[in-house]
């Protein structure tokens, strides 16, 4: 019973770490909008944390370049397992309109493995919330399979 409670807890308490990897702030504003009374993601137990050691889900916006790739990798490595990564916005998914720029490596998946991609420029808060729920669904399936 205790084991099933722990497994259920893992999908009921997603704490998000939001990292702006070089976004124009459009997707960041939409991500933070999820926390406002209009969307209120805390209904699902979501908390926006500022510490990778406490985070379960890494929400990344913007393109990756050689300078912030190391920071992104560092944040990812500091998070406890199991962890999810969500790439938010066209830039986070693929590099967007900046993908051909000389200093841009591309999307988030060039540096760390991504679980859910959220398209849009900027991505809508509803889509970001849906991505968290989809990610937790994937995590639940993995936990069920490993039981």
């Amino acid at each position: 019973m205790f084991g099933s409670f722990l497994r259920a807890s893992q999908v009921k308490s997603p704490w998000l770490l939001h990292f702006d990897c070089g976004s124009c702030n459009g997707c960041d504003i939409e991500t933070l909008a999820c926390l406002t009374p209009v969307y209120d993601v805390e209904r699902f137990g979501v908390i926006n944390v500022g510490n990778p050691r406490h985070a379960d889900v890494l929400v990344v916006t913007g393109t990756v370049n050689p300078r912030n790739a190391a920071v992104l990798k560092n944040l990812y490595d500091q998070m406890p397992t199991p962890k999810l990564v969500i790439a938010v916005g066209a830039c986070g998914c693929s590099g967007g309109v900046f993908r051909e720029a000389p200093n841009v490596l591309g999307g988030i998946d060039k540096v760390i493995p991504v679980d859910v991609y959220v398209p849009g420029c900027p991505a809508k808060p509803e889509a970001i919330m849906d991505a968290v729920v989809t990610g937790l669904g994937k995590l639940k399936a993995i936990l069920e399979a490993s039981k």
Partner: peptide
Amino acid sequence: TARLQSRLGPPLLQPFFDVGKLMSKAI
């Protein structure tokens, strides 16, 4: 706190889920 801020807020047992989740994390 959520209701005071015009939000619905998490379930009453959310802190227990948080602790359960933290217990099962590997770091």
